[in-house]
Design a protein around this nucleic acid. Structure first.
Ligand SMILES: [Mn+2]
Ligand SMILES: [Mn+2]
Ligand SMILES: [Mn+2]
Ligand SMILES: [Mn+2]
Lengths: 226, 226
DNA sequence: TAATTAATTTAGACAAATCTAAAAATATGT
DNA sequence: ACATATTTTTAGATTTGTCTAAATTAATTA
């Protein structure tokens, strides 16, 4: 009855199921997992059987899946490792936020409780990763931020960029180029009706910046005090 | 004709072949690899075929193996990563030298040139790992130390502990307990004829320390100036 | 040198993680 | 409600890395 070991592959499935659950778009289906992982549906069905046998998910054929407490715990710990490493790579090694995800995908599977306790302490128990995502603590607890997409900002509102909803290197590099990085404050000067784009003024700058709705939907912001 | 990718498993085989080659105990046989890896000889034969196909080793049936330049380069880079991580784990995270090897066995397979360039710089381009083993630079070059086993020390000679020939946690913990750690200087006070054990006096201490031949063979030392 | 022993390779099997193609179940639209 | 479309599962195959048992080659000993 001891802890069965979970393979890297299984960890990846659990992480994806966790993320689909987080999005809360209803039932977590075989096809949604298949799509997100780029793996054939038949292969996913196979793995769901294995994860179910290990009691990491509940699964009834054709009915979709959900994480058990044990599966959720495993997923959260993988995410904790991923985000701790990303923080390390950016803050200590000086890599940029658009190149750490790929490396963290590898590092998140390293097994050693002690390593992560030490790493966490070394990094001074950071609460957020370089993309603004919360880092679970060693018990798996973390605070969910109340960030909203920039696309739902109010005219003349003052906001702070606190996260991204797209972690692709291209998007992150675009943000870097235009100076829309985490912590950047801005005021909404105009909301275009015809294309839902924005004109914002970044604090401490002169020129207004146009932000398409596409971009605005993927930028997470928090209301700033005026 | 591009760089074929090398799996983690293949990297482990190359590393073992490299280490057997380093020991220079003549021909590198299927059985020596099998023994060192704890894998059946038949499995080793199989893998030797694959490594040979990839031109990472030269291999003629029944004749033993040797690394090609490409295979040696791969092995050295894995060792570089292993030792850089060990240095990081001890110097930055504060883990002890007896608990880092296992973790480094996992970390040594992380793929990212940039990560290791940055890590190397962050650690200030260390020349040795926590066990006194040299860390290859990004071109694979490293200086081989002229350390000798303590068992061949001269009576009344003054030496410096600079390495270990056994990396097991038990041995390293024994050394820690008795204070025989890297950098520790000592003078050989007695050499017992009947069991080839030593009595040494560590610099800055009063009591002589008995060191069995077993231990002395596994401790690497360098002559110190008197 | 011939017999015996030891090392190595071959043959056949298995588990994990994947695939494609076909079958079965569920969902959708008129 | 029934036909059609979509989703999911099953069946069978493949790749990688491993195993055991048997066959073969090399080494040792008498
Ligand atoms: Mn990431
Ligand atoms: Mn992140
Ligand atoms: Mn090591
Ligand atoms: Mn080492």
């Amino acid at each position: 009855m001891q802890n069965k070991s979970v393979s890297q592959t299984e960890e990846n499935y659990l992480k994806v199921i966790y993320k689909l659950d987080e999005k809360a778009e209803g039932k977590i289906s075989t096809s949604s997992i298949s799509e997100m992982m780029g793996i054939a549906p038949a292969s996913v069905t196979d793995m769901l059987g294995k994860l179910s046998d290990k009691k990491l998910i509940s699964y009834k054929k054709y009915q979709g899946v959900s994480l058990t407490p044990s599966g959720r715990k495993t997923a959260v710990m993988v995410i904790r490792k991923h985000r701790l490493w990303e923080h390390f790579l950016v803050e200590k090694l000086g890599l940029s936020w658009d190149e750490v995800h790929e490396i963290a995908e590898q590092l998140e599977h390293i097994r050693s409780e002690k390593l992560f306790d030490k790493l966490d302490a070394y990094l001074k128990f950071p609460k957020f990763d370089p993309h603004g995502d919360p880092i679970p603590d060693s018990n798996g607890n973390f605070t969910n931020t109340s960030a909203i997409p920039m696309s739902s900002c109010n005219l003349n509102g003052k906001y702070l960029i606190t996260g991204v909803a797209d972690h692709s290197a291209e998007f992150l590099r675009y943000l870097t180029r235009t100076g829309m990085i985490l912590g950047c404050q801005f005021t909404v000067k105009e909301k275009q009706e015809y294309d839902n784009s924005f004109l914002i003024l970044k604090q401490g700058t002169k020129n207004e910046l146009a932000v398409s709705n596409e971009i605005a939907k993927k930028l997470l912001v928090t209301k700033a005090r005026d």
